[in-house]
């Protein structure tokens, strides 16, 4: 029997209007406890004004094998890369 509680991913927002960022993960039996644990583990030092928790199994992620078909095609299309403004989160600017 698996006695481990499910794993949850925690996202915190520093200030209203800012994007939520992944803070880390934790174990909890259900969503209310996950939210409370997230508050205790990831926002003890004023890091957040809002928290999202989502059970890890509900996250759909691309896999390392997808790298080629998903991301590389944009590398050689130079016209897609802006020269005069910054793209948030882009690997190179």
């Amino acid at each position: 029997m698996n006695n481990e509680w499910p794993l949850w991913e925690v996202f915190t927002q520093k200030k209203s209007g800012l994007p939520f960022e992944h803070a880390g993960s934790l174990h909890a039996p259900d969503k209310e406890m996950a939210l409370q644990n997230a508050r205790d583990v990831y926002s003890r030092r004023n890091e957040a004004t809002c928290i999202w928790v989502v059970e890890t199994k509900n996250i759909v992620s691309s896999t390392p094998e997808d790298v080629g078909s998903f991301f590389e095609p944009s590398n050689d299309k130079i016209y897609r890369h802006p020269n005069f403004y910054k793209t948030p989160g882009a690997a190179f600017e």
Binding site: W5, L26, H27, N37, V41, R44
Partner: peptide, 11 residues
Amino acid sequence: PILEEDIAMTN
């Protein structure tokens, strides 16, 4: 009993 609760109680 678990890390999360350890932190909660000391908080």
